[in-house]
Computed example of a mutant assay.
Amino acid sequence: MDCKMEKSKIQMLYDACNYVFSQEELPNFQQIQWLKNILNTFKAVDVGIDEFRLDGSPGSGEVMNSNGLISGQGVSEITYIHIYECDQFSMGIFCFPAGRTFPLHDHPGMTFTSKPTIGFVGRLVAPEQMSSSMHHVNHRSLFPRSGGNIHSFTALTPCAILDVLSPPYSDDLGRPSTYFLDFPIPSLPGYAWLEEREVKLPCDLVVKGAPYLGPPLDVPDDDLC
């Protein structure tokens, strides 16, 4: 009997991103909601992360445990798991130990959608008026024309965040990664001045790499990056 294998969630996300972000126009609300609905179905194991199991001693630098998955509880530094990237979009996972903060940065001219698959995140968002507020985040979308494209986030617990970014960062195409310092304004509580950092990458920001161990992606040969 001919039986088709069910698509993995990461394959469904790739297919949806490939459709939405291959259009010449910016994605509309319905398309972003479609992507968010797909992201909302993800659990840690769907992207090769073990949410609970910790093998070895914390801080040992080993992120892979004995069952062949990334240990979500064993990451001792901010870690990025690259899944896929092309000219139109990228997919990846940021893993954070509890208490670590990713500094204030922007996504110039990009649509950014993220979904925590493990843990809880507090995010500091600085919209166009440079107001800032801290809140718990279950899902986040940032659009290039609606403000709120400068943000930072802090892991309240060990967490993993699945990110979709369109288009990816590119210095050559005018989409550099810029980091900011924020200075509270005493006379305007809740507001701050933002200043670009002179160095591209803050010296106290260390991001390690780890292999993607989730289900493989089926992509065209000429689309491999």
Results as ranks from 00 to 15, higher is better:
T41G: 11
S22T: 04
F29A: 15
I38G: 08
S76Q: 02
N67H: 03
I38H: 10
I32K: 06
F21M: 00
L13A: 02
D55L: 07
V75N: 04
S76C: 10
F52N: 15
Y80M: 05
H82G: 05
E77H: 11
N28D: 00
K36V: 15
K36E: 15
I49F: 07
Y80D: 09
M12C: 14
V20S: 06
V47W: 12
E77W: 00
Q33N: 12
I49D: 03
L54H: 14
E25L: 05
S60T: 01
S90C: 07
N65D: 14
Y19E: 10
S66D: 09
I49V: 13
H82A: 13
L26R: 04
S90G: 06
Y19A: 09
V75D: 02
N40H: 12
F52G: 15
I32F: 03
N37T: 09
L69M: 05
T41P: 02
N67P: 05
L35V: 02
I38M: 05
V20C: 12
C17H: 01
V45T: 15
K43I: 15
Q33H: 12
H82M: 05
N65G: 12
G61P: 04
G59Y: 01
S76M: 03
S8T: 13
T41C: 08
N37Q: 12
R53P: 13
E77K: 02
V63T: 09
M12S: 10
E51Q: 13
G48I: 02
D50W: 06
I38L: 06
M91I: 07
D46E: 10
D46F: 14
I78V: 06
V20G: 08
E24L: 06
L13H: 02
H82P: 03
I78C: 03
G48M: 02
D15A: 12
F21V: 02
N65E: 10
R53Y: 15
Q73A: 11
P27I: 04
N18A: 10
Q73M: 15
L13N: 09
D50E: 12
I38V: 03
K36P: 09
E77F: 00
W34Y: 07
G56A: 01
V75C: 12
F52H: 15
I70E: 06
S71M: 04
L35H: 04
R53C: 13
I81D: 09
F21T: 05
S8R: 12
R53I: 13
N67W: 10
T79G: 02
L54K: 13
G68I: 13
I32L: 10
G59C: 11
L39Q: 15
L13P: 05
S8Q: 12
Q31T: 07
G92Y: 03
I38S: 04
G68E: 00
Q30S: 11
C86S: 11
C86W: 00
I70R: 03
I70S: 04
M91G: 08
F42L: 14
S66A: 03
V45A: 14
N18D: 12
G72C: 12
T79K: 00
V45G: 06
Y84Q: 01
I10G: 01
P58I: 08
P58L: 04
M91W: 07
G56Q: 00
F52T: 15
M91Q: 06
Q88I: 06
N65M: 08
